[in-house]
């Protein structure tokens, strides 16, 4: 089997994606992080049905330390099962992280692509707009949005997405400025491609690698952001999330430190895993780092 693979390697130049995969596999920490991340995602998807205890239900005495009476992580100040909170909260954290990152990627790509492709006045306006959002104090701005429009899950996603698209916009614009001058863009134009096609199916696919990396990192920061908002009490009170557990137990941090430590660790591990995956993608997608 291996021999056959090697033979094929010699005969045929590799597909770019398989080269990226090879590059990624070689990065030990990125592979571990990917493994951890997959476990967390599986937990987020299937956890609630495997561990159906309601995280808001008072199931035992308050402040029982981990391991007692079958409650693996103990209970919080209201006697709620922390394990249930952790399992059910994973879903919210991952969901918010991914959808907020997705939202900011969509906004960022659109604005960056239009600015980089059309240049001129359009670029001026869009880039000033980007700078405007860049200099806003992000936490404050999203707090205002959530406070104004209510602390529902979609609103939190929108608030996070609105404050974090600027990096994507700038990266996209930079890539567009570089790629639009390449000859194959001119060749596509010479074969009759419209502006829309040039932007989205000629230039954008070539600009994607750094955007993908940025998007991966943004999932991590969105999770942190959500935790921050929940900690401040700006989250949907009916949905448990890691940040919310920390926030509601913060008064008891000295008496029952495990109530905040465990969800804190969960956030830390998840964000670290995402960052390492992003880092691994960065190395794998960067042609200059390949074949070293």
């Amino acid at each position: 089997m291996k021999e056959k693979e090697n033979k094929e390697k010699e005969e045929k130049p590799r597909h770019p994606l398989s080269e990226v995969f090879d590059m990624y596999i070689r990065n030990f920490s990125a592979v571990c992080a990917m493994f951890v991340l997959i476990v967390i995602i599986i937990l987020a998807i299937f956890g609630p049905s495997l561990y159906p205890t309601d995280p808001f239900e008072m199931v035992w005495m308050p402040f029982s330390p981990p391991g007692q009476e079958g409650f693996l992580l103990g209970t919080d100040y209201l006697g709620r099962d922390l394990m249930a909170g952790l399992v059910h909260g994973a879903r919210v954290s991952i969901l918010v992280g991914i959808s907020a990152a997705f939202m900011s990627v969509v906004i960022g790509i659109t604005i960056g692509a239009l600015a980089g492709y059309y240049r001129g006045t359009i670029e001026e306006i869009l880039m000033r707009l980007t700078e405007f959002f860049q200099v806003l104090p992000t936490l404050l701005f999203s707090m205002v949005i959530v406070a104004l429009f209510g602390a529902s899950l979609p609103m939190i996603v929108i608030a996070i997405g609105l404050v974090s698209w600027t990096a994507v916009a700038r990266i996209t614009r930079a890539e567009f400025l570089r790629i639009r001058e390449l000859e194959f863009v001119m060749a596509s134009r010479a074969s009759g491609a419209s502006d829309f096609r040039l932007i989205f199916s000629v230039i954008l696919p070539n600009a994607l690698p750094p955007i993908i990396v940025q998007a991966a990192l943004m999932v991590g920061s969105a999770i942190l952001f959500e935790a921050g908002l929940s900690f401040l009490g700006l989250s949907d009170p009916n949905i448990v999330s890691w940040g919310q557990i920390i926030g509601s137990n913060r008064q008891y941090i000295l008496d029952a430190s495990y109530t905040v430590t465990v969800p804190g660790l969960a956030i830390f591990v998840t964000v670290l895993a995402i960052s390492l995956v992003g880092d691994g993608l960065n190395d794998a997608l960067n042609p200059k780092l390949r074949r070293r």
């Binding site: 390449l182 000859e183 194959f184 001119m186 060749a187 596509s188 134009r189 010479a190 074969s191 009759g192 491609a193 000629v202 696919p205 070539n206």
Partner: peptide, 17 residues
């Protein structure tokens, strides 16, 4: 363009996407 008048460029190495 590309239909009734088309063009080939100098640099085949960079003219394809």
């Amino acid at each position: 363009r590309g239909n009734e008048i088309s063009m080939i460029f100098q640099e085949p190495m960079t003219s394809l996407n």
